[in-house]
């Protein structure tokens, strides 16, 4: 194998991981829309899942279910542990996304926008140290709900 092939076969998974992490971070840090931030977070988590899966992979091996054709040599089966781990990690990731989406819908309901700039403007307008009555405030808002959502309709 020449260096070119080594690079793509052996190293590309790392490159892909790093690239995905960077894309994810870019989305989380620089995008101004909260949903896009959330998407960035998902890409970020995906990168790490990919990273694990790559390491479970072996050239020419098969799924870790006993197969006559492959015999009982462990080298002929891919490592199942990373897959098992990532199954859990995916559950975690989905759960995180679920909570995040619930938060986002709450934010949208309260402030009528998911754009960070507009949110910040709204937040600054409020007095600091107001008492905690979030739930109550939100309910009242919802009842009065008629206020038009002038921002964030995109």
């Amino acid at each position: 194998m020449d260096g070119f092939e080594v690079f793509f076969v052996e190293k590309w998974p790392y490159l892909a991981t790093v690239l995905m992490i960077l894309i994810g971070l870019y989305g989380m840090v620089l995008k101004r829309n909260l949903v896009k931030k959330l998407i960035g977070m998902n890409i970020f988590q995906g990168a790490i899942i990919l990273f694990f899966i790559i390491h479970g992979w072996k050239r020419g091996a098969t799924v870790p279910v006993y197969d006559e054709a492959f015999g009982d040599l462990p080298a002929n089966y891919v490592n199942p542990i990373p897959h098992g781990l990532m199954l859990t990690a995916i559950v975690v990731s989905v759960a995180t996304t679920g909570v995040a989406l619930a938060l986002l819908s709450l934010i949208y309901k309260r402030f009528g926008t998911l754009e960070e700039d507009e949110l910040l403007r709204e937040l600054r307008a409020e007095p600091a140290g107001a008492p905690s009555s979030g739930e109550m405030a939100s309910q009242r808002e919802d009842v009065e709900g008629a206020e038009p959502d002038d921002g964030g309709q995109r």
Binding site: F111, L123, G134, A137
Partner: peptide, 11 residues
């Protein structure tokens, strides 16, 4: 749960 702003900071 908390202030009006709580979901934003939580997010």
């Amino acid at each position: 749960v908390g202030d009006r702003k709580a979901p934003v900071s939580s997010f």
